[in-house]
Design a protein around this nucleic acid. Structure first.
Length: 455
RNA sequence: GGCGGCGUGGCCGAGUGGUUUAGGCAAGGGCCUGCAAAGCCUUGCACAGCGGUUCGAUUCCGCUCGCCGCCUCCA
């Protein structure tokens, strides 16, 4: 079974699903107020890979990831553009799914929206007030953090040190500076909901607790998100759940940031690259490979050089799969995937998702597959190729193996060149090869004749 | 100020108390090829610095220097 780093304990621990064979995972999704950037891309890829791996191992995965469509930033954008918040949210959610499709990310099992859970949140907040864990301040409802003894678990800070180190601005409506808002009263706002505590809208930290528990139950296996969500977002989710007696998430998993020149990529530093920008220029798989080549908890540097390096590395994988395709026929369908490769792959992944090591195993496999093909050991080559194909699929790096349909004009040029080569008219054959290259088709001459493929 | 993390060969980036190499990209040499492409083979005194533990440390401990993150909206 996979072992994962649990931010709650600081240890790498074995995942033990509460329900055998089913893994329940909640991943905090985006606030849809702008175009997603590389940081969003990384978290989405990390948990996509985790999910694919767990499914590869035969587990059922219930993957829940929300869309935050109620938020101050959405409102601010709507106001500045003089339109409805729901329009803003709708627009950027569309962009979000487009980008995820481009990145070949599997859709979560459930995608709850905050706006669809307002009533449930109101009920939840009422319960917190009832048991005395939350109180009504002048401008909203606050959670009384001191109610939770273990508050600070994810921040790795004691309640006391959090209190003394709090940098939040003092708010006379709060009993303590570290208390956080569950409900914000906005009596005159257009975009607001009626509640027993006044007209307003929910705070950010409540939606995930409510939606996660609605879809996964009061306890589940994995709660994931970016490292910057550990505190305060996840800490506050946890506090609310615990106040009402839930055990909530078993493992807290946090991925590292994208960095640019050693600095965190963020809006405030305006050093971010958006995903549509990246995808527009490069093979989206290059970014996925870059993410795989670093450990998910480490900071990851991204720049055009590194994306280019990854794109070239990708060619090595693609070339290997093309070579596999060329040799594939019914006669070798019974060959089993190389178990040694799959075993080391599993060991690497089980160790806190060591994808960099797993990737190195993949590349080593590619080399030995090529060697086996070169030596004419077809059975061995195919066995390795089959293992490679499995690993590539778990990583989500596969290309759609759509039938390579060549336009007639290309076929004509290709056959013409084959003829020229046979006549040893190399001047003509090279000219034709250049023509094909211009059209986007590459040729490799092998013992069996020329091989053409789209580049 | 509190807490957490990092510093590996030209670049990115794993890993490990010792004998065999992470891996990718780039660079040099070679094989293959009509030339290429693809592929293969091969080369490069890596583990921030200083001490300590140890038969032996890049890997454990301490200190120093440098860097980053969280503590505020943030993936």
């Amino acid at each position: 079974m996979i072992h994962l780093h649990n931010s709650a304990t600081g240890q790498i621990e074995e995942l033990r699903p509460a329900v055998d064979g089913i893994i329940k995972m909640y991943v905090c999704g985006p606030t849809v107020y702008d175009v997603p950037h590389l940081g969003h891309g990384r978290f989405v890829l990390v948990y996509d890979i985790l999910r694919r791996y767990l499914e590869y191992q035969g587990h059922g995965v219930i993957h829940v990831s929300n869309i935050t469509d109620v938020d101050d930033k959405i409102l601010a954008r709507a106001d500045s553009e003089n339109r409805q918040p729901s329009q803003v949210a709708g627009e950027y959610e569309k962009v979000w799914w487009k980008v995820l499709d481009d990145l070949n990310v599997l859709r979560p099992t459930h995608v709850p929206h905050a706006t669809a859970y307002i009533q449930e949140m109101i009920t939840f907040i009422s319960e917190l007030i009832e048991i005395g864990a939350a109180y009504i301040g002048g401008d909203g409802v606050y959670f009384e953090v001191s109610r939770i003894e273990s508050y600070g678990l994810l921040a790795h800070q004691s309640l006391e040190s959090m209190r003394s180190g709090a940098r939040v601005e003092p708010n006379p409506n709060k009993r303590s500076p570290i208390d956080f808002a569950l409900w914000k009263n906005t009596p005159n706002a257009e975009w607001a909901w009626e509640s027993p505590f006044g007209r307003g809208r929910p705070g950010w930290h409540t939606e995930c607790v409510v939606m996660a528990q609605d879809l996964l139950g009061s306890s589940f296996d994995i709660h994931g998100g970016g490292a910057d969500l550990a505190f305060p977002h996840h800490e506050n989710e946890r506090a609310q759940a615990l106040a009402l007696g839930s055990s909530f998430a078993d493992k807290w998993v946090h991925n590292g940031f994208i960095v640019v020149g050693d600095e965190k990529m963020s809006k405030s530093l305006s050093n971010f690259v958006t995903l549509p920008e990246l995808i527009g220029e490069d093979d989206p798989r290059a970014f996925r490979l870059l993410v795989l080549q670093s450990h998910y908890r480490s900071p990851l540097e991204v720049n055009s050089t590194l994306i280019g390096d990854a794109a070239r590395a990708l060619e090595r994988i693609d070339n290997a799969l093309v070579r596999f395709d060329r040799h594939y026929d019914a006669s070798i369908s019974h060959v089993q995937a190389d178990s040694e490769i799959l075993e080391s792959f599993g060991q690497a992944m089980d160790n806190d998702m060591d994808t960099p090591l797993a990737i190195s195993i993949l590349f080593q496999g590619i080399t030995s597959m090529n060697v086996s093909f070169d030596n004419g050991d077809l059975t061995k080559a195919i066995a390795i190729a089959k293992a490679i194909e499995i690993v590539v699929r778990v990583f989500g790096l596969g290309v759609t193996r759509s039938e390579l349909v060549l336009p007639d004009a290309v076929v004509e040029l290709f056959l013409e060149r084959e003829g020229a080569r046979q006549r040893k008219d190399f001047a003509a054959s090279d000219r034709l090869r250049d023509r094909l290259l211009e059209l986007g088709y590459g040729i490799e001459d092998t013992k069996e004749g020329g091989q053409i493929r789209k580049l």
